[in-house]
Simulated scan of single mutants.
Amino acid sequence: MARTALTAQKFATLGLAPSYVTPDAAGVSFRSSGKQVLHVKNGSGSSITVTLKIGKTVEGQAVTAPTATVGAGADKFFGPFNDNYEQPDGTDTVFVDLSSVTSVTVACLSL
């Protein structure tokens, strides 16, 4: 399965009404310039875990990806993301995994 590729939606002076999508079970990806924020809305009856994939190694060793919980019926904003989160393929892409996507929607917002 491929990750859901998100397009950043830019904040505007006159307001932003973001569009949300249901992510693929493989997670989401988006291009980062250091100004992107991921909004995760959990409409399910259970908590989910969001894993922010680290794209760098330290002295050849993988770094443990940070995780956060989004409670049942809650939402959280993640980011902005520095270059440590960009995957090593040179595309400035950030990967985020979600433990469940049932009743979950996401949007990538850009400052």
Rank of each mutant, 00 (worst) to 15 (best):
A2E: 11
R3N: 08
R3C: 05
R3D: 07
T4E: 03
T4M: 04
L6P: 13
T7G: 12
T7S: 14
A8I: 00
F11E: 04
A12Q: 13
A12I: 02
T13P: 06
T13S: 09
L14K: 15
L14N: 14
G15C: 05
G15K: 05
G15D: 01
A17W: 02
A17K: 14
S19W: 04
T22Q: 08
P23G: 10
P23T: 13
D24F: 05
A25Q: 06
A26L: 07
V28T: 09
S29L: 07
R31L: 15
R31F: 12
S33M: 11
Q36R: 04
V37R: 09
H39P: 05
V40N: 04
N42E: 03
N42P: 01
S44E: 06
L52Y: 06
K53W: 13
K53C: 06
K53V: 15
I54N: 07
K56N: 08
E59C: 07
E59Q: 13
E59D: 15
A62F: 09
A65L: 02
A65R: 01
P66S: 05
T67S: 08
T67P: 06
T69G: 03
V70A: 09
G71F: 04
G73F: 02
A74Y: 04
A74M: 09
K76W: 00
F77M: 13
F77D: 10
P80I: 07
F81D: 01
N82G: 08
N82L: 11
D83R: 08
E86Y: 13
E86P: 08
Q87G: 12
P88V: 03
D89N: 12
G90H: 10
G90S: 10
D92M: 09
T93A: 14
V94Y: 10
D97M: 10
L98Q: 04
S99M: 01
V101I: 15
T102D: 07
S103Q: 11
S103G: 00
V104L: 03
V104R: 00
V104S: 00
T105Y: 00
A107E: 01
A107P: 12
A107C: 12
L111N: 13
